[in-house]
């Protein structure tokens, strides 16, 4: 969103004892620009001052402050999404030197120069680094990712959980719908219609949850359909890029097994 100059980007927070404007570094940066969904994309180069400890967001803010290209030409400020600046909201996912990262938690130090920032490639570009990830939310509907109870009826205390299930539930609950796993997955693209790693993890979660188990067959049928669980070729990129460490491959393995059982049962009953 719009407010800039946030102190949480490693940019020196004014009035902050301990921060210093000394020893900034001039960082070469290239950003892939695109004015609108239908416009032609192009790369633009900048050189910006980065204080020690700066994040990628701090570089973008610097361009917003002084929208000038590396060769001194005035330009429009780069547009991107950001919100929490503490890696919980999933808004600022982008490609940093070709790798999918949360810009708010990616430190400039240690990145190869020039740093290249680009929008995610698996989603339609809205403008510059902003992409439309609404497909992720649509797909949650495809797998009926919810507990299908009507909360108006008093149900008494919730279900008891084993410690094991609780721990697993914790791990899967960390997903922030950032889209990193979809970006990295070689099977995910508009042509395969693959449902993607994070949705398969949610299927696993609902299959275990005492309140959601009853309707698990519907979800397994959804992942048995084209673009479902068999599309996963086990490249394991998803688990490597997940910023929250969600155990995606383990969850997918479990869903594959459950779907296989469901498929065999359907076949034997037909």
């Amino acid at each position: 969103m719009g407010v800039d100059d946030p102190g949480r980007t490693g940019a020196p927070a004014p009035g902050d004892a301990g921060s210093t404007r000394a020893s900034t570094e001039r960082v070469a940066l290239r950003v892939r620009r695109q004015a609108s969904p239908s416009a032609r994309p192009y790369w633009e180069a900048y050189v910006v001052e980065a204080p020690p400890g700066a994040t990628v967001i701090a570089l973008l803010l610097e361009i917003r402050r002084r929208p000038v290209t590396a060769d001194g030409r005035p330009t429009t400020p780069v547009v991107w999404e950001m919100s929490c600046l503490e890696e919980v909201c999933g808004a600022c996912t982008m490609l940093v030197n070709g790798r999918v990262r949360q810009a708010c938690a990616t430190l400039v130090a240690g990145l190869r120069r020039p740093i290249r920032l680009a929008p995610l490639t698996k989603f339609p570009v809205v403008r510059d680094l902003v992409v439309d990830r609404s497909v992720m939310f649509e797909q949650l509907k495809r797998i009926r990712a919810w507990v299908a109870i009507d909360g108006t009826a008093p149900r008494g205390p919730g279900p008891r959980f084993s410690e094991q299930l609780r721990q697993w539930g914790y791990e899967l609950s960390k997903c922030m719908t950032c889209g990193a796993c979809l970006e990295a997955c070689p099977q995910y693209n508009p042509w395969t219609g693959f449902i993607g790693p994070t949705n398969l993890a949610w299927v696993d979660y609902f299959g275990l949850h005492p309140n959601a188990r009853a309707t698990q067959d519907e979800r397994l049928d959804a992942v048995l359909a084209p673009g479902g669980v068999q599309t996963c070729a086990n490249a394991q990129n998803c688990v490597r890029v997940c910023p929250k460490g969600v155990p995606l491959t383990e969850a997918i393995y479990r869903v594959k097994r459950a779907a296989l059982v469901r498929g065999l049962r359907r076949w034997s009953e037909s």
Partner: peptide
């Protein structure tokens, strides 16, 4: 309890 029934993986005690 409603949130729990909606599926929030709240922390449990030793009795689940």
């Amino acid at each position: 309890v409603e949130l729990e029934n909606f599926g929030v993986a709240f922390n449990r005690d030793e009795h689940g």
